[in-house]
Design a binder for these strands. Structure first.
Length: 260
DNA sequence: ATGGTAGATACTCTA
């Protein structure tokens, strides 16, 4: 039997988080990690240090903001960076690649800022384009994995206080409808499939003691097509990194698959 | 059209 572990982690600056990332790679031994918010231009991406740790990289970054990477112990094939209708000035929020026969799409879905803002419109539009990307380039009958920082909580069990969160950013009707439309392409939420309706979070704001009070949200997700979901043997949130000094505000989420 | 903190860049924006 051959197992494959695939993780998603918003590291909030790959260069700041590099010591923690290397420690976590050694401890958790994932085969693939989809990384978000690298926050660095490609010239400063730590490809050599990751290669020394046993991981090849595909990455697309920019100054200060955004940036995504897929790192893997196995060969990375057929890399696509951003959508076809993006240009050089577009925020770097998507990278897709094939690893071990699985089409992996790593996304840093826009935060949206405020519900009345242009950035929120951009978030909804970006989610429409993500759905179109799957319609145009992927086969729902094959092994496809969508993962990343979705910046959307799906249901009540994904938020620390559903009542106070309803209608707020990350849990408003329009963004939940837009992410649901992406899911309708043919995805299964692996965390829910493997854990039922338990309440657990993947992100805690740096402010207001959110971590200490467990005021979190589950906004980091791994969604699989039917054939890939059937191979999943476990999915968990690794909260150990969030308790470290100077942590990312997001915890890694891991899924394990039996691929043979 | 809030304050709390963290990160990158250059003292403000984004999350």
């Amino acid at each position: 039997m051959i197992f494959m572990k695939i993780a998603t982690w918003n590291v909030n600056s790959i260069n700041v988080r590099m010591p923690q990332l290397l420690d976590w790679l050694a401890a958790a031994e994932p085969d693939v990690v989809c990384i978000q918010e690298t926050k660095t231009v490609d010239e400063n991406y730590p490809a050599d240090a990751l290669r020394d740790a046993g991981y090849e990289s595909a990455f697309i970054g920019q100054k200060s903001y955004n940036g995504v990477a897929i790192i893997s112990k196995f060969p990375i094939e057929d890399v696509q960076k951003n959508f076809f209708d993006d240009d050089d000035d577009s925020p770097k929020r998507m990278i897709a690649a094939t690893v071990g026969g699985i089409r992996i799409v790593d996304t840093y879905i826009p935060n949206g800022s405020e519900l009345w803002s242009d950035k929120f419109k951009f978030k909804l539009d970006w989610l429409q384009r993500l759905r179109a990307f799957f319609d145009e380039t992927c086969d729902a009958g094959k092994d496809v994995l969508l993962c990343g920082d979705f910046n959307v909580a799906i249901d009540d069990a994904d938020v620390w206080d559903p009542e106070s969160m309803t209608g707020k950013l990350h849990f408003s009707k329009p963004e939940r409808a837009a992410i649901h439309n992406v899911k309708q392409w043919g995805f299964t939420d692996l965390y829910r499939q493997m854990n039922g309706n338990v309440q657990e979070f993947s992100w805690w704001d740096y402010r207001a003691g959110a971590w200490q009070r467990n005021h979190g949200l589950r906004i980091d997700h791994l969604w699989a097509s039917a054939s890939l979901a059937a191979k999943c043997t476990g999915c968990w949130i690794d909260k150990s990194t969030r308790a470290l000094t100077l942590p990312s505000d997001h915890a890694p989420v891991v899924a394990e698959f039996q691929i043979k």
